[in-house]
Nucleic acid binder design. Structure first.
Lengths: 150, 150
DNA sequence: CTGATTGCAAACCGTTTGCATTCTT
DNA sequence: AAGAATGCAAACGGTTTGCAATCAG
């Protein structure tokens, strides 16, 4: 955890950005909530608990910065809110999501699964793939069980 | 084209909605621009050419209606704008997109491609898939050629 | 020191909503 | 006639921006 933070700091630094307490606090929150898909506002509130003087605009600017450096991925499940996901270290590609239409939960799939599909797309459509977004909408296991109980 | 319009009208009707000139004009625009990925504003401006008295709110309400009836899919490429895509008739699943990072063009893939992946996800994650969203980000064929010319 | 970064408030912009009016059925 | 649908303008909510004050390097 702490070493992960160090590496991110180094990335910021070598990209010519300053290491402010606000940026560190923001990255810390992201590290502590890897599994959640936090909105900017969520991050803001969490950072505020530890560093109450921070402003929402700074959080937005930091998240934008981290997105630019590919430390974080900005995603969008169709409600009008952007969410921010820490990239797994060494992950070339973005992970996939399972969004439950009933309870709204979001699960992650780390496995690639798309290698074959990408090969087809690159060959047939002559499209050089840089990244992908794959989201499945459906009913999660827990909600399925709820139905069976009735 | 005209028969497609008729069928959509019928769908609206049998869902208990009225057939107003504004709704017809909006559907017409969507049919005439199937390949484009129009935003609500785009649709509004196009409808306005033929029916200048229409209001933006009505376009939003109609698009919402069509989305609800699954005549149209609401998509979101990450810029803060929703776009609306007419569903191919008989298409069970949503089609995929290729977004070019350089020129911004959006191509469509009608083929399913995800059957195998979906089978894996349903089995391994016990997730009942209802729909999916798959977008590839990369460089389109034309932009690749532009590079080679240099 | 000096330019980068911050916090605040105001501006933005796509979208939604309240309401009186108009139109389908 | 009666409820649904419309147009307008105002409200909304997430995000961005201008600016003076502050801070990191």
């Amino acid at each position: 955890m702490e070493d992960r933070l160090e590496r991110i700091k180094k990335q910021l630094h070598s990209a010519g950005y300053k290491l402010t307490p606000q940026r560190e606090a923001t990255v810390r929150v992201l590290l502590e909530h890897e599994e959640d898909h936090l909105s900017a506002e969520d991050v803001y509130l969490l950072v505020k608990e530890k560093s109450p003087e921070i402003g929402l605009a700074t959080v937005y600017r930091t998240l934008e910065l981290l997105t630019e450096l590919k430390i974080v991925d900005k995603i969008n499940f169709g409600d009008g809110v952007s969410r921010y996901d820490l990239r797994k270290e060494g992950a070339a590609h973005f992970h996939h999501h399972l969004v439950c239409l009933e309870c709204g939960s979001v699960a992650e799939i780390q496995e690639d699964l798309l290698e074959d599909v990408e090969a087809i797309v690159e060959r047939e459509w002559k499209f050089k793939i840089k990244d992908h977004r794959l989201t499945f909408h459906g009913i999660c296991h827990r909600c399925q069980q709820k139905h069976e109980e009735k």
